[in-house]
């Protein structure tokens, strides 16, 4: 087992765990976290792409992709969290 394979399989596994959580969890926050996991898994996988032959020279493209992905995910998480808060406020108002 080469390190890249381990890395890749881990990425896939993490993505899978996140996926199941994102689809099947009921708690809102858990779902956001699950999505984050997915994102991390995808990032892992892309980083594996940088490992390619020749193994000594890392390919910078996947890194750029990963960074972009992280940026996108951060903003998405922010929006999601904001929405969750907003929803909690509204629910609290309705209950009162």
């Amino acid at each position: 087992m080469t390190p890249d394979l381990i890395y890749g399989l881990t990425g896939i596994a993490v993505f899978g765990i996140g996926l199941v959580g994102a689809l099947c969890a009921l708690d809102r926050l858990r779902r956001v976290l699950a999505l984050k996991l997915c994102s991390v898994g995808a990032g892992f996988l892309l980083v594996v792409g940088a490992w390619r032959a020749p193994p000594g020279v890392p390919d910078p493209v996947p890194h750029a992709l990963v960074i972009t992905g992280i940026v996108v995910m951060v903003s998405a998480t922010a929006v999601a969290l904001a929405l969750i808060r907003r929803l909690q406020t509204l629910e609290a108002e309705d209950e009162r």
């Binding site: 080469t2 890249d4 394979l5 890749g8 399989l9 896939i12 993505f15 899978g16 996926l19 199941v20 689809l23 099947c24 594996v48 390619r52």
Partner: peptide, 27 residues
């Protein structure tokens, strides 16, 4: 969440396939 669960399963299956094919194929 039947649909979602099913899809999750499907996708997980695809991922496994991918793991089998893509990562090994890469080398």
């Amino acid at each position: 969440r039947l649909g979602q669960t099913a899809i999750a399963g499907l996708i997980a299956l695809t991922l496994l396939l991918e793991a089998g094919g893509s990562l090994r194929g890469e080398a």
